[in-house]
Structures are given as C-alpha cells and as structure tokens.
Computed example of a mutant assay.
Amino acid sequence: MQEKAHTHAGDALAAARRRMPMTELPDVVVEGDEGPTPLLDLFGDHDQLILYKHMWHGGQPMEAQCEGCTLTVWDATYLDSRGIAFAVLFEGPWAEARELRDLMGYPVPCYSVHDVDDPVLGTGFGEFLFLLRHGGKPYLTYAVTGRGTEAMMSSVQLIDRTVHGRGERWEDSPPAGPRTTARAGGGARTGGRRRSGAGPA
C-alpha cells in the first residue's frame, strides 16, 4: 500500500509540474564540436529539451571530477523517440569538457557554457533544466537539483530497493546494516563509468 501511495503521489506531483509557469530564456550561444551554437539549435527537430548542467572542478584531474554528474549522463535514445532532445552543458571550458566527455564516453551532445553570462544557464551546476520551444523562443518549464537529479540514476534507484540499500551514513537502515559505501578505486575510467550516488537532500 505504501509503494502504491508513493507512486500515486509522484503522479500527482508530475501533474503539478506540468502546470507550473514558464520562464523565457535568452537564446544564448554555447560551445561544442561545431563551435559556437545557439541554444535553440540544441532542440534539433524537437520542441522539448532536457539539459543536464555538469559540474567542472577547474584545475583538478579527471578522477577528481564530480561523481554524481558522471552518473547522470546516459544514452537518451528513448527520450529522442518521445520527441525530447537531451544535451549536457559543462561548467568548464570546452577543451576540458571535451576531454572528460571523450574519457567517459558520453553518448549525448555536450557543450560548454563557460563563457555564458546568464543566471539560469551559466550558474548552479549539478542541475536538470526542462525546456520548451514555443513561438521560436526557449522557455524553462522546470528545474531540479540535489537528490532531485536521482531520477536519472537508475542504478541508485535499484540499490535503494536492496536489503542493504546504499550503505550511506545518512541512510535509515537496520542497526546491523552497513554504514559506508565501498568506493574501490573511485574516479573516472576509460571505457566506462565508476561513480557513486549523491548524498542526502
């Protein structure tokens, strides 16, 4: 019964999100493989666009970059089939963003907003933005950060359903349960991702 109530509460919350007011955004120019690119071009043939704003720790090696961010980037083929484009906006300069993208093997379009001066698109990383193109203009319909980004972390959602859970210190588990998460090696690696989930909200 609790599981069903949780699911239905999520449905009601999603319905409320779809009725939130929209905010018009400027058609800023980001940088990617094709050079300077207008934000509207990221929509491609679609009217909806989801952006993930990927953190970048300047001056730090690849293995020291954000664990949570690398866990949220995945193949968005199904989104595309539902008329939704997906792209990643990197906080760092394009040359460094491209290096991390290639190392991690991200299969989605990536861009840098390092030089973008905008309170929505140029700040507050570790965040999902949900955009709509309407009348030739981009609009922000919803944004979420913190543990709200876990919607994209299918592995974390599955781990939450195991008897041991995540093993994080903040987690409510039986007294004899684990309290820490093993993170052998940590960091990024070539040919795949090795990352752990986010902390409490």
Rank of each mutant, 00 (worst) to 15 (best):
M1N: 12
E3N: 15
K4L: 15
K4Q: 15
T7P: 00
D11E: 14
D11H: 12
A12K: 12
A15S: 14
M20K: 14
T23P: 02
G32A: 10
G32H: 03
G32M: 01
D33I: 03
E34W: 05
P36S: 10
T37I: 05
L39M: 06
L39Q: 05
L40P: 01
L40H: 11
L42M: 11
G44K: 01
L49W: 00
L49V: 02
Y52I: 02
M55N: 13
H57K: 13
G58F: 10
Q60P: 06
M62C: 09
E63F: 15
A64D: 15
A64F: 12
Q65P: 10
I84H: 06
A85L: 08
A85P: 02
V88R: 03
G92Q: 06
G92F: 05
W94F: 11
A95C: 00
A97G: 06
R98K: 14
E99C: 00
L100V: 12
L100D: 09
D102K: 10
M104G: 09
Y106F: 11
V108H: 03
P109V: 00
D118S: 01
V120Q: 04
G122Y: 00
G126V: 05
L131Q: 02
P138W: 01
P138R: 09
P138A: 08
Y139H: 10
Y139P: 03
V144P: 02
V144A: 13
V144Y: 03
R147G: 11
E150V: 03
A151I: 14
S154W: 14
Q157K: 13
I159F: 03
T162S: 12
V163Q: 10
V163F: 06
R166D: 02
G167V: 04
E168C: 09
S173K: 08
A176W: 10
A176L: 09
P178D: 02
R179A: 01
T180Y: 05
A182F: 03
A182M: 07
R183V: 11
G187P: 03
G187L: 04
G191I: 04
G191C: 08
G197M: 09
P200S: 14
